[in-house]
Simulated scan of single mutants.
Amino acid sequence: MTRLHVPVPLRWSDLDAYQHVNNVAMFRLLEDARITAFWRHEEAAAGEAWPTAILDTGPHATSHTFVAGQQIEYLRPLGFSRTPVRVEMWIGAMGGASLEVCYEVYDGAPGGFPRTGPASGEAPYVKAATTIVVVDAASGKPRRITDDERAAWAEFAGEPVAFRKRG
C-alpha cells in the first residue's frame, strides 16, 4: 500500500507546559496534512499537485467536507523541531459519501522526503483516524464520492488504523 507523506511544520505555540506538542495542537497538525493532501492548491498549476488533491476549495467550491468523527492515540511525546514532521496518510475505508483518513506521525528528515511511498516502519508518535463526509455545498447534504475521486484515492487505500482495545 502506498501512503502520502505530508510535511507539516511545528510551531512554538504547539507546545504545552511539558515541552511536547499539545493534544489539541496535534489535531491541527493532522488537519493541516489532510487539507494539503485532499484540497487543490495553487502549486497544482506549477505541476506540484498532490495526487489526491482533487477537491476544490474556496467560496465557489461545489463540495465541502464535514468531520464526522476523530480518534487519536498518543504513543509517545513529540517535542519541538525545526524540521517538519512527516504525517503518513492513507484511506482506511471509503463509503458512499465518506472517507476514513488514517494517519501516523513521524520525525521528518532534513532536506525533505518523497511525497508518496510505503510505511516508514519507524515508531510513530501518534496514530489517528478522521471520518470525513463529502457534502454538496448548495444543499449541505452528503453527496456520493465520484468515480474520479475514488480513482484518485484508490492507490492510497489500506487497512484502517488498529487502535488499542479499551477494557
Rank of each mutant, 00 (worst) to 15 (best):
R3W: 09
R3L: 11
H5S: 15
V6E: 02
V6S: 02
L10A: 09
R11C: 07
S13Y: 14
S13F: 13
S13W: 11
Q19M: 15
V21T: 03
N23C: 05
A25R: 02
A25T: 05
A25F: 04
E31W: 09
A33M: 08
R34T: 03
I35E: 03
F38D: 00
F38W: 02
R40N: 09
E42A: 15
E43A: 06
E43G: 01
A44N: 15
A45D: 14
A46D: 15
P51Q: 06
P51S: 11
A53N: 01
A53P: 00
I54C: 11
D56S: 13
G58F: 03
A61V: 08
A61S: 14
S63Q: 12
H64L: 14
F66R: 12
V67A: 14
A68K: 04
G69P: 02
G69H: 11
G69A: 14
Q70C: 12
Q70H: 11
Q70E: 13
Q70I: 12
Q71Y: 05
Y74S: 02
L75H: 10
L78M: 15
S81C: 14
R82Q: 09
T83E: 09
T83Q: 09
V87Y: 01
G92E: 01
A93Y: 04
M94I: 08
G96D: 07
V101T: 03
E104N: 10
E104S: 09
V105C: 07
Y106F: 15
D107S: 10
G108S: 06
A109P: 04
P110S: 05
P114R: 13
A119Q: 09
A119C: 09
P124S: 08
Y125S: 05
Y125R: 06
V126M: 06
K127Y: 06
K127R: 15
A129R: 06
I132L: 14
V133I: 13
V133F: 06
V134I: 15
K141C: 01
P142E: 07
T146N: 06
D148S: 12
A151W: 13
E155M: 08
A157P: 01
P160A: 08
V161M: 05
A162I: 13
K165M: 11
R166G: 13
